[in-house]
Design a binder for these strands. Structure first.
Lengths: 214, 214
DNA sequence: AGAAGCACTATTGCATGTAATCAAGAGAGT
DNA sequence: ACTCTCTTGATTACATGCAATAGTGCTTCT
């Protein structure tokens, strides 16, 4: 046993900042002042600086020379680009998952969709619903057995979730999402890779199209 | 004019390290000791540390807790994964480029392929040929008008070029590469997006398959 | 009033100090 | 010879110091 299993400070800070961003505690375009955050989180500037750089790398923050970083805000063009890439990569992830998932993994997917379906009868909760959706997509790409793919998708998902609007919680979209997730899982369970790819791509495209009409 | 247009030290170091890695000066699995590199490059440890972290983000180095970083080495599985993702992303880039490239861009592409064709009559030079190939692919994705796509591809290209073997310089592969590049450019010039995607995907797949039989 | 210049403050980018930690090799015991 | 322990040396992870720089608000001039 290597004694210290304590997490790196940098990573804790990174997680904390991610959380703040997704919470809305740090809104898009908020400045990310290293000294201020260091004081707020009771750590020195170094781990904060490194965490902020990770955010920049992930596309969750942007940086300008000698002017520090701010939380990224997605303009319409970038959003479109992100979803265009997700369309093919989520498709690929589903394709691979259809070839590689074992029964346990499929069962977990089914369970997640089931949870979402049951929540349809309850009032919408944007945070919760977005988190569930994120977890579902994460589960699929984890079964794609392709690390570079997972990492790329992870960044794109993060950027997607920067864009949070009321649209995500309309009844129509919640129902459609469950329906589309169902189709993806069914294809994966059947081992039908081509269908899984098509279903996942269509799902991502659908999310984007529905986001367009606010 | 904002006075100082001098590049950030961190970025210079980052570029220097990339260069060393692609040169073979730093071979895969070489340790990246921050103090040693700092001394070698005559800068303090901070910019080196940050540059190394950028390499890690890019997938050009890997890191283990309290043990520092080393230059990444691609095992067969990872290489396969990288190429699987490149297959769809380079396809998407070509698709977009076919829709968005202006005449000047197409002319530049044509010129690059022409240069490669002319070099066929000269003896192979792995460094030069790999660089040309990289530039060609970069040119196409720059015309895809999709920043997230470019960034993802940039990382994957970097990882691809970590894997450098004699295979790249066989006569057969050089000829096939020119031929395939030609097909891509032709499709882009014709504005035939579907064909461009297919051509680019096939090209990437071809590179991988040929790399397999060493 | 509006523009231009200026001093001030906060922050960055880089340098360096330091305790904790790990890898590696010497030496002792079996 | 083999393993185990311990020391040694190097390195990381984090803290902090500091000069240079960008933004901010005030003052002054037109």
């Amino acid at each position: 046993m290597t004694a210290s299993e304590r997490a790196l400070l940098t990573d804790s800070v990174h997680d904390a900042l991610r959380e703040m961003i997704f919470n809305g505690e740090l809104e898009p375009d908020s400045p990310l002042s290293v000294p201020a955050l260091a004081a707020r989180l009771n750590v020195s500037r170094t781990p904060v600086r490194e965490a902020v750089q990770q955010l920049i790398y992930e596309g969750l923050a942007s940086h300008t020379r000698n002017a520090g970083a701010r939380v990224a805000s997605l303009d319409a063009d970038t959003l479109k680009s992100v979803f265009q890439v997700r369309e093919v990569l989520d498709g690929l992830a589903a394709f691979n998952a259809a070839l590689g998932s074992d029964n346990a993994a499929v069962a977990q997917m089914r369970k997640m969709v089931q949870v979402q379906r049951e929540l349809l009868s309850e009032p919408p909760d944007q945070r919760r619903d977005a988190l569930l959706d994120l977890q579902f997509h994460t589960l699929i790409r984890d079964n794609a057995a392709n690390r570079p793919l997972s990492e790329a998708l992870s960044r794109l998902d993060g950027q997607s979730h920067l864009f949070r609007s009321d649209m995500w919680v309309t009844e129509l979209n919640r129902r459609l999402a469950v329906c589309e997730h169902d189709r993806i899982v069914a294809a994966i369970e059947a081992g039908n890779a081509a269908e899984a790819r098509e279903a996942a791509s269509a799902h991502v495209a659908g999310i984007y199209v529905r986001a367009q009409r606010l």
